[in-house]
């Protein structure tokens, strides 16, 4: 039996030298999904050696603490490989999740995608 292809949870495009990542899921809550999203994000740094990563949260309505944990790890990986991670287009309700946990000070957060692209 052949293995099922792993469903992409991210839409990735290159704009100039920046790797822009959009999330397929509106709710980043489910443990299994978060695991897959984490793996696919980490591959960008560990395997594809991307240095400038812009995460666009425009599609995201919900985000759990487990998802925040993956983003923290991704940020650490990006920093230690000499790269940079920027977050953008975060809806106010999701922005609040970052503010409550004080992760708005930990991550580089920009307004829209254009501002994100210009911040590199």
């Amino acid at each position: 039996m052949s293995a099922q292809p792993r469903k992409r949870r991210l839409e990735v495009e290159e704009i100039g030298d920046v790797t822009v990542v959009n999330f397929v899921d509106r709710k980043i809550l489910d443990e299994q999904n978060i695991q897959i999203i984490g793996e696919q994000l980490f591959e960008l740094v560990d395997v594809e050696q991307k240095k400038k990563i812009l995460l666009n949260f425009g599609n995201v309505d919900y985000l759990s603490s487990a998802a925040l944990g993956k983003l923290i790890t991704l940020n650490k990986k990006a920093n230690s490989s000499g790269g940079k991670l920027v977050l953008c287009n975060i809806k106010p309700e999701i922005k609040e999740v970052f503010e409550i946990t004080k992760l708005d000070k930990f991550f580089r957060i920009q307004g829209d995608e254009q501002a994100g692209l210009q911040s590199f």
Binding site: S64, S65, L68, G69, I72, K76, V97, I100, T101
Partner: peptide, 10 residues
């Protein structure tokens, strides 16, 4: 950078 406590805080 530690994983614990954030869920409870939310």
């Amino acid at each position: 950078e530690r994983p614990c406590g954030r869920g409870l805080m939310l």
